[in-house]
């Protein structure tokens, strides 16, 4: 592989609006995508809420950014992994999510982490 292309995984671990981590994480992903890195995004724990359909941020003075995840495809960020157990624990299914994802067991997400050059948690 090209020395200037790294395998970089971003790990979304938090609910989208209780803190800025997910939003600023998404900003980082978009820039790295513009630099044509080999990106993937894993959603674990409360991070799975970032992809939930029908979010409405009108009442909390925060910009809604859930739809930006739908744009990732256009930046060639196509490897979106969701932890199956995290999703189930929160009473959600794939149908509740805005984008097509790969549902994976925790161990498989862990295995893919070991394949990365860089893992950045948000």
């Amino acid at each position: 592989m090209d020395d200037n292309v790294k395998k970089i995984m971003h790990v979304m671990r938090r609910a989208p609006h209780g803190s800025i981590y997910t939003y600023e994480g998404l900003e980082m992903i978009l820039i790295m995508a513009a630099y044509e890195q080999d990106l993937s995004v894993a959603f674990i724990g409360d991070g799975v809420y970032a992809l939930k359909k029908n979010q409405n941020t009108d009442g909390i003075s925060m910009k809604g950014f859930a739809k930006t995840f739908m744009a990732l495809d256009g930046y060639d960020v196509e490897k979106l992994y969701v932890d199956r157990v995290s999703l189930e624990e929160r009473g959600l299914t794939e149908d509740d999510l805005l984008v097509d994802v790969e549902l994976l067991d925790s161990a498989e997400i862990g295995r893919r982490m070991t394949e990365q050059d860089v893992v950045i948690h948000h």
Binding site: I31, Q37, D117, V118
Partner: peptide, 15 residues
């Protein structure tokens, strides 16, 4: 900018 972070990720052995 964040582009610099990307460059740091590329040019180092570890981030």
């Amino acid at each position: 900018g964040l582009g610099t972070l990307t460059d740091i990720a590329i040019r180092n052995d570890r981030l």
